[in-house]
Each structure stands twice: as C-alpha cells, then as structure tokens.
Design a protein around this nucleic acid. Structure first.
Lengths: 167, 167
DNA sequence: TTTCCTGCAAATAATTTGCAGAACT
DNA sequence: AGTTCTGCAAATTATTTGCAGGAAA
C-alpha cells in the first residue's frame, strides 16, 4: 500500500497527450501550465515538488510547510492561488474530509475517502467501492457522482469496535 | 415526496421510549431536554418549531432567520449553542453539503445527500441507496458508514446533460 | 438560590481579495 | 514591454468562546 515517491505519474487524467519534456512529472505540469499562458515560477515548481512527494492528503497549511523547507518566503495566499490554478488545470483536486480544512491531492491519485468521525482516520477507497452507488444514483436520479471529491463519514474499524464493547 | 408539516415525528431514533406529553413533537423534545437536566427556554422552543416546520436542510443562519420571525432577539450564537445541544440529544444532525455552511436537519429525517458541484442542487437519497457501499465498506475495511452525515458530490441530471452537449 | 442559558463582543480558523511591486515571457 | 504572480495586509465567512447579567428549576 505504501507507494514509492518516484512511482507517481503526472497528467494521466489528461486525454492521452504524451507530455513533452524530461519525464519529470513536475516539469510536465509546468510545460502544460506554460502552454496555457501561465508562468513558471519557483513557488509553483516547489509546490508541485511537494505534491509529487510526501503524504497524499495535505491541507494548504501542510503544503505550505513543505514548500517552506525549500523556499521559506512563499506566502500562504500564494499556495492557495496556485492550488486553485492547478485544480483548474486538472492536476490537483481537493476534498473536504469531515470537519477541518480542505485537503489537496493529485488528480491522478483518484479515490474515495472513508473518514472516521471519532478519530479522523482516513481510509482511501478505490473507485470500485462506489460502483454500485454510482450506477444506482445515475439510474434513479440521473446524478453522476464524482469519484474524486468524496468523503463518506462513519466509524473506522477500531472506533466502531470500541463503541460495541465500551470500557 | 412533499411532506406535510404535521407529519414529522420526533424522537423516532430514540429507543422506543414513548414520549410523554401532548403529542406535539416540540414539547416532546422539550420534555426530553428537561429530563436530562436542561432548561426549557423560549429560544429553544422556537428553534424546535422552526426545525419541525419548513425546509428540511437549513443553515444556522437560515434557522436564525426563521426564529427571528417569532422572537427577533435570539442571538446567532444561541442558535449554534442550541443546535449543538439538540445534536447531543440526538434530535438534530448536521451535514456538510459541499462548500458553504453546514446544514441542520431532524435526525428522524435520515437520508444521504447527493450534491451538485455545479448548481448546488441537493438530492435527498434514501439510506438504501448506500446499502451496497455500506456492506462493502464494512466487509473490506471494517468501516461502519454513517448514513446520516453524508455528502456525495457530483453533477445533477441537468448539469451533467449540459456538460455532455455543451453550447 | 443555585445552576443553566443568553446576549454581546471578541477571538478563531480557513480562505479570499485589493493593491503595488517583482518576475516571467 | 506587457502581462502575470507574489507578498502583504485586510476583508470575509462560519463558528466558537469568555463573561456578566437574566431566567428556569
């Protein structure tokens, strides 16, 4: 289940266009950004570096902390603006896992989330888990669920167990 | 699908104890509150009146507006505190439907939510829709999903249609 | 008369925005 | 040069909290 850092690939969700440059996923995204009229800046490169390495789910604040280890002067508002930009590019998605701040992750890391209301543990669930629900929702309501932007709340295994036999 | 106001019942989730008084659901909840050492106040009675009549999903702000039509001096912070109290009693639950403020509704109105990311429309989905997901989540992860505190994001029928044939 | 509840003001947390200067193309 | 980004400060939104007076039991 642990994923090596180099293993992550960029732009897999963007219709098969073979990314141009180096093979470095960060540079691939930066190329895309430039192709869309955006500018390649240090803060964006470092943010992407943080996104492609490290924990999957991170808040803007946590990403800022990672960015600051390389470039301490990047302002939090810049992180927010860049995450927004990257989301528009389809590279990043955010999700609201229970209460607290939103978390951001790579769009290529598509999954749903099961979030424990008691201990805040997050289980990443493969999209298949939602297949039946997706089919039913479409059939009954014409509703197309978004498998990426997802948080289902409840009790994780250990917290549920503790509630069944308290004390 | 439209539900007459008087039809709503109180305390259905609380283990079968037949509520004492008048049959008015508001008064039933107030009895419960008093039994737990709480005090029956005007702001609580009016808030419960608002919850038992009117739109199902409302934000604290919207509930405050409804309360103010009867008693204009109830402070928003009191609404929050009372909603919290009622949630502790199991009478009310809140859910985060996409972005924006939390919404509150009666615990007896149990359902999941399908929220459109484009137009914010909310479809109330019966718990059965999540049956398969609930079973799989429990089987594969030991995770017990909470069918009440739920928001699945995606595209509603009309917004999904518009994306398929744009323009 | 004791404990709980309320209004008010202020604090908090997460995020957004206006602006003037700095950096990319 | 011309547009886009950035840092900073301040505004916004949603919610919480401390406190001192007022009300329910």
């Amino acid at each position: 289940m642990v994923r090596a850092e180099g293993e992550r690939n960029a732009l897999t969700t963007l219709d098969g266009a073979p990314a141009s440059s180096s093979g470095d996923p960060v540079e691939e995204v930066l190329d895309l950004l430039r192709a869309r009229g955006g500018r390649v800046t240090t803060s964006r490169r470092v943010l992407l570096g943080a996104l492609f390495g490290g924990e999957v789910h991170r808040t803007a604040e946590e990403l800022a902390k990672a960015v600051h280890e390389v470039t301490p002067d990047v302002h939090l508002s810049t992180i927010y603006r860049n995450l927004d930009e990257l989301e528009g590019l389809g590279v990043v998605v955010h999700a609201h896992l229970g209460h607290g701040p939103a978390t951001y992750h790579l769009a290529s890391e598509t999954h749903g989330h099961l979030v424990c209301e008691v201990c805040d543990a997050t289980v990443e669930a493969p999209p298949e888990l939602f297949g039946e629900l997706a089919a039913d929702a479409r059939l009954r309501y014409g509703f197309v669920i978004d498998p990426r932007h997802f948080a289902v709340l409840g009790r994780c295994a250990s917290c549920a167990a503790q509630e069944d036999h308290p004390g």
